[in-house]
Amino acid sequence: MIDLVIDQRRKDLGGFEVGRVLPFAKRRMVGPFIFFDHMGPVELAAGIPRSVDVRPHPHIGLSTVTYLFEGEIMHRDSVGSEQPIRPGEVNWMTAGRGITHSERFEKARAKGGPMHGIQAWVALPEADEESDPGFWHHGATDLPVIEEDGLWARVIAGDAFGLSADVRTHSPMSYVHCALQPGARVTVPADHPERAAYVAIGTVEVQGGRFSEGQMLIFAQGGAVDIRAVTPATLMLLGGEPVGPRFIEWNFVSSSKERLEQAKADWRAGRMKLPDLDDGEFIPLPGDPPPPANPMS
């Protein structure tokens, strides 16, 4: 049964648009998933300005996973990682007590090309909110895939369809990329108490209703849900065990409002290390004055 349908809200990030899905006023989280953005699809022109890049910024209390259908993003962070993010790969960054990172469109700047993908944030359980930060990269061929009757599915993180991804998570969850041919079906099992399906491409049918790209379907607890593709369709299936309510402000997530205030103070005071392999730029705390102009930007 469908409890709620969330339509993406388009936001211009100064170079391309994203569709914000979570958090939503009537549904803040799905399992541990607290943030869900649909990037693009967009065709970026060669020579795009550096202002399109996401300059270094901080996180606490969460893990991020950037998953691309098309394009490439260069990731750099304060634990020393420098990793191109490419389609079908999992790039799992755990902020814990604090991490900073940048996301830059260097390949598109040099050659032009498409950009299309999903960025999600997963809230950490309270016991892990102050864990050590880290970054883990998993190639597309390292992740389990199933193919049957017009359905192709890759398990990005957690467990699904009897398969488990070798991606370090902190709470029971499921995150799956599905591609369906017209008429093909996928059944969302009742493995987790909170579950959703996001239509990234195409149109699907669920319980007699039709739903199209940009819509997230939130399912009621209990009972498997059958999804049929009306057109070629790409879905993201997500869910898991709830980790409890969370506060979210800017790029910070925590079970404590006081911890959010400490993170804001730390960022404002320059106490959070920037990526060594980046160029020293950073995004100021919203409401703060911008940093001095960087002559290299």
Rank of each mutant, 00 (worst) to 15 (best):
G71N: 01
M74F: 07
A46R: 10
S78A: 15
H75C: 12
R109Q: 15
R109F: 08
I48Q: 11
D53I: 00
G71A: 02
E72V: 00
D37K: 01
E43R: 14
S63G: 10
P114M: 01
N91Y: 01
R97S: 12
V79H: 05
G117T: 00
R76N: 09
F33E: 01
D12T: 01
E17D: 14
H57E: 12
V79T: 09
R97H: 14
R20F: 05
R9G: 08
T94R: 12
T94L: 05
L4W: 09
G40L: 01
M93V: 03
A45S: 13
M39K: 03
G117I: 00
G19L: 02
P87A: 08
A110G: 14
H57A: 10
Y67F: 04
E43M: 13
H59S: 10
M39W: 13
R97Q: 12
I2Q: 07
P114S: 03
G71M: 01
K11N: 14
F24N: 15
G98N: 00
G88I: 00
G15Q: 07
I34A: 11
R86G: 02
T100N: 12
R10E: 06
I48H: 15
A25M: 13
F35W: 15
T64M: 12
G15I: 04
W121Y: 08
P84F: 09
G40F: 03
M93R: 02
V90K: 09
T94C: 06
V30D: 02
I6H: 11
I99W: 05
M74K: 05
I60P: 07
V54L: 15
L44D: 04
G61P: 03
K107E: 09
K11I: 12
E70F: 00
H75I: 07
Q8T: 04
P58E: 06
H57N: 08
S63I: 00
Q119A: 02
L44H: 02
G47W: 06
M1A: 14
G80K: 09
I85F: 06
G71H: 01
F35C: 04
V65Y: 08
F105I: 01
R97F: 11
D37C: 03
M93K: 02
E103L: 05
S78V: 10
L68V: 00
G14M: 06
V5C: 11
V18P: 06
D53S: 09
V52W: 15
H59A: 08
T66H: 07
